[in-house]
Design a binder for these strands. Structure first.
Length: 510
RNA sequence: GCUCCGGUAGUGUAGACCGGUCAAUCAUUCCGGCCUUUCGAGCCGGCGACUCGGGUUCAAAUCCCGGCCGGAGCACCA
């Protein structure tokens, strides 16, 4: 070993060039550039046997891109390892769940291109939670506490154990039955560790009484499990839990509950919550914006709710790609819209039909223009079919200063007069190196394009987060269906949102 | 406040676990150029980063300690 040290010392005493020279002689491969081009994939996870993951939405609102990414990760690994996906509604709070959201969430998940093998609702599993609760009581790991909320709080803060903790098994069992009937006030608590540094471990509440009717099971139950308990039981059936670090401190609790009950422990992997710059995701932040009419609803195109993204023209696959890009990051990513747009553009470019559109148009009259019917490709390189345009003397064009222009794909025009209308004269069709402009023939559709921008710049509300451009487009857009995403050449990708006298589009991105 | 977690170009990300192919990856933004009957796509090039300070070591983005900054949690919500 001394020899090695001496050799290292000797080599280190050489200067860099000499070291390189020496290395070139004895180990030339070192200098060959290693190509590390690889497609971005999510890292492997430890697994053996069947893989089961879960998507756990609470049916209390619309899901957003954060849920979408979380669902994507869980779905991705289940599919990668030929496992199963459980869609599980975490609906154990009768005061918050709403019937309508069960379906809307399923629609949104389907739209994302994410499927599942098993669907369940925790609200339909309450008897099972009761069973395990009694089991915990029998193992002296849980007790009924009749203290009020405030005292429980204080005890927790002061790390003091409650006297309710000393009750015997039989009494706890009896009180638990009364709790189920709602005949006494109180909660079921876990015998955790009141001195734990993790406050979540200080005898957390497992069940509480809630008399509100539940959208699925109505008034069947008065005693409802809390998140940690229901989740601990349910997650014993999955092998991999991928979730954001909001739940970091609950892992210890849930693991402990399963340990007490002799249930299996899933593999847990956490990642950070992420956000999109200038765009709120939290319901409590979005709701006031809706109430103040700053955004138009949960599907507002400036939001990153799944509905908002869909309306804007973001493709489901873009969410998948974004998931691969960010990965199970433990930093706190703040995604720029440009990254979403760039991914989306690459996916959209080969499949979006092209049409002509002119914003803020001016009229151009070309007196001696030959009337004709022309055919144009729907896409410059892909085979998406053709479209026809009938052209005459009258055109709509953007405002120009040039003396000579070429109407793209048509002919050259010499400008004679600039006024309210522009008057021009037909030259010829030979391709010249002059400015090519977009145009729309006399037969046109009126178009409005809504252009979204970020809602917030820093903490400041962006007053110009929604702009509108009016203009005209070729009549061929009449054949489009609402929801189709096309490209208005030299303007950008747009999604048809509404088809009336005026065609309303949402600007997706350039 | 307390407890955890994190910090690589403007942004996202690879590398870190296992120190030496890192003179640091890929993408995005921005800027040039090429190509194109789209200002889109594509191609080529450019700018641009290891949070700071100490320590360990022949050698630190990588290991250790501390500061700074950011985030999360601290419910009879999930």
């Amino acid at each position: 070993m001394r020899e090695i040290e001496e050799i290292v010392k000797e080599i280190n005493s050489l200067d860099l060039e000499d070291q390189k020279k020496l290395l070139r002689e004895i180990y030339p491969e070192y200098f060959q550039k290693r190509k590390t081009k690889r497609i971005k994939e999510l890292p492997d996870l430890p697994h053996s046997g069947e893989v089961i993951t879960r998507l756990p939405p609470e049916p209390n609102g619309y899901i957003h891109i954060g849920h979408g990414l979380s669902f994507f990760f869980n779905w991705y690994y289940a599919r990668k390892y030929n496992g199963k996906v459980i869609l599980r509604f975490d609906d154990t709070n009768p005061s918050k769940e709403k019937k309508e959201y069960y379906d809307s969430i399923k629609e949104d998940i389907k739209w994302l291109g994410i499927d599942w093998d098993i669907e369940k609702k925790e609200s339909e599993n309450v008897e099972r939670y009761y069973f395990y609760a009694k089991e915990l009581i029998k193992r002296e790991k849980a007790y009924v506490c009749e203290c009020d909320e405030e005292k429980i709080h204080r005890d927790r803060f002061e790390m003091r154990e409650c006297r309710c903790r000393e009750r015997g098994i039989e009494e706890n069992l009896k009180l638990f039955e009364l709790l189920k009937k709602g005949e006494i006030r109180g909660v079921l608590r876990l015998k955790g560790d009141m001195r734990s540094r993790n406050t979540a471990m200080r005898d957390p509440t497992l069940f509480r009484i809630n008399l509100d009717p539940h959208p699925i099971v109505g008034n069947k139950y008065k005693l409802w499990p809390l998140y940690d308990f229901a989740c601990a039981i349910e997650d014993a059936e999955v092998t991999h839990v991928l979730r954001d670090n909001e739940f970091h401190f609950r892992i210890e609790v849930q693991n402990y509950i399963r340990e007490c009950l002799g249930l299996k422990q899933p593999f847990v992997r956490e990642y950070s919550r992420f956000s999109v710059r200038g765009t709120p995701t939290a319901k409590r932040k979005i709701r006031p914006l809706i109430e103040k009419n700053i955004v138009k609803g949960w599907d507002d195109v400036r939001l990153v709710t799944i509905r908002g993204l869909k309306r804007r023209g973001i493709l489901p696959q873009t969410v998948h790609e974004l998931g691969r890009e960010i990965g199970l990051s433990t930093a706190e990513p703040v995604i720029d819209w440009s990254i979403i747009e760039s991914i989306n553009r690459k996916l959209l470019d080969p499949i979006a039909k092209r049409f002509f559109f002119v914003g803020n148009p001016k009229e151009l009259i070309v007196e001696n223009a030959p009337e004709k019917i022309i055919k144009l490709r729907m896409h410059p390189t892909e085979d998406l079919g053709e479209r026809t345009l009938r052209v005459g003397k009258k055109f709509f064009i953007p405002d120009i200063k040039e003396k000579e222009i070429r109407l793209k794909d048509l002919f050259n025009v010499r400008i004679i007069e600039y006024g309210e209308k522009i008057i021009g004269e037909y030259i010829d069709t030979t391709l010249k190196n002059i400015k090519k402009i977009q145009w729309v023939p006399e037969e046109h559709c009126n178009v409005e394009i809504v252009i979204p921008d970020v809602l917030f710049i820093g903490e400041q509300l962006n007053n110009e987060s929604l702009k509108t451009v009016s203009g005209v487009a070729e009549r061929n857009i009449e054949s489009l269906n609402v929801g189709e995403i096309i490209q208005f050449e030299r303007f950008g990708f747009c999604r048809l949102d509404e088809k009336n006298d005026v065609y309303r589009f949402i600007f997706t991105h350039r």
